[in-house]
Write a protein that binds this DNA or RNA. Structure first.
Lengths: 192, 192
DNA sequence: CGGCGCGACCTTACTGTGTAAAGGGCGGCG
DNA sequence: CGCCGCCCTTTACACAGTAAGGTCGCGCCG
């Protein structure tokens, strides 16, 4: 009797997009360590091995894709009057993308940028150069460093990983701390 | 015949210190993903389970210890004439400690600081406050962010993880890039 | 000097994980 | 109607972390 046979075809047909979204949700809600092929399969109502069909390269490729996802942003340069504003806009966008998925921050910082992530960096460099900044490559490097570090420190202090530990005194919230350091950095870059 | 019996006692008696050192070496040379209890045991000429005796808490505790190890530094404030110099000294020390063990950077940035790592932060804040800086907490936060991010970006660009990928143009070496951004940040903090 | 207790290490065993390999079944094309 | 190819599942294996319990050797007490 074929009545109760477990549907061979999944409810909706699985795609790279869906896989990455589900992976992000698991990583964010339960931590990277608990992001597992089988668990990911469960979330997608599919056996773990089905994932390999849409993501050749297995888990390594998945992690690369996640890193890429949170380091790919776009900024419209037309809204900025000066390179300072433009730089700030890029930094805020970058920070927002990283903060949106705290679970994969360590991947974003560790994995070398490829594909769209590398393209993002090139675009940012291009725009800042066009906006009149001398040595845009150096500036982008410093700005990226600050954005990465800021988000890392912010997540540390909000005690995102590990429950228990955060006996640090009440900070100013992350936003204002970020803006303060950011304007300091940009001011410093101006007189370089 | 007791001649060939595998020595029950290891050549040298295993200690928390030795465990952490061996773990750092494995993580640096082969990557965090290959740092395994059994492999660590092999490196120490011991079965994996022996480690648990000296490191209650297992792998989680080990990773915490590693993170702590690369975020614990000391700086002698007597050599600095201004808070600017002092801040720079702290940043250089922090960067050196992180660069010394690239394999565990992601842990250092992810895990909330505990124990000696937290003490390091408190000490830095204290010293900068004593040196006349207003809002030392905010400054330390910004500086730490920049140091973390700088090292991350530097390791990305030297292609530390993943072989293949680093089609970025030849950068200025990490040292000078770091110093440039650092002086920019400190200059910006001065006029805040 | 003989036993003995205890701490450092080992053995075994179980659950989970990544992934290669091979097996289905459902849709469409001839 | 039969067959093929795509997606997904099944099965299998090497290796991960770690709980439980065994074993050896050292040092201490009598």
């Amino acid at each position: 009797m074929m009545i109760g046979m477990p549907a061979k075809r999944p409810p909706i047909p699985l795609s790279r997009e869906r896989i990455i979204d589900a992976a992000l949700e698991i990583a964010d809600s339960q931590g990277l360590r608990r992001l597992t092929m089988r668990r990911l399969g469960d979330a997608l109502q599919v056996e773990a091995m089905a994932i390999y069909h849409h993501l050749p390269g297995g888990k390594e490729a998945l992690l690369d894709a996640l890193a890429q996802h949170v380091t790919t942003v776009e900024v419209d340069p037309s809204g900025a009057g000066s390179w300072q504003e433009l730089a700030a806009a890029w930094c805020r966008a970058g920070r927002a993308a990283l903060l949106a998925h705290p679970g994969v921050l360590s991947l974003a910082m560790t994995k070398p940028p490829k594909g769209s992530a590398a393209a993002t960096i090139r675009e940012q460099t291009q725009q800042l150069g066009d906006a009149g900044l001398a040595d845009p490559a150096g500036a982008v490097r410093a700005l990226r460093a600050y954005v990465f570090g800021s988000v890392a420190v912010e997540l540390q202090q909000t005690g995102w990983a590990d429950p228990k530990t955060q006996p640090v005194e009440p900070d100013p919230d992350g936003d204002t701390a970020f803006e303060q350091g950011l304007s300091a950095l940009i001011a410093g870059l101006a007189q370089a």
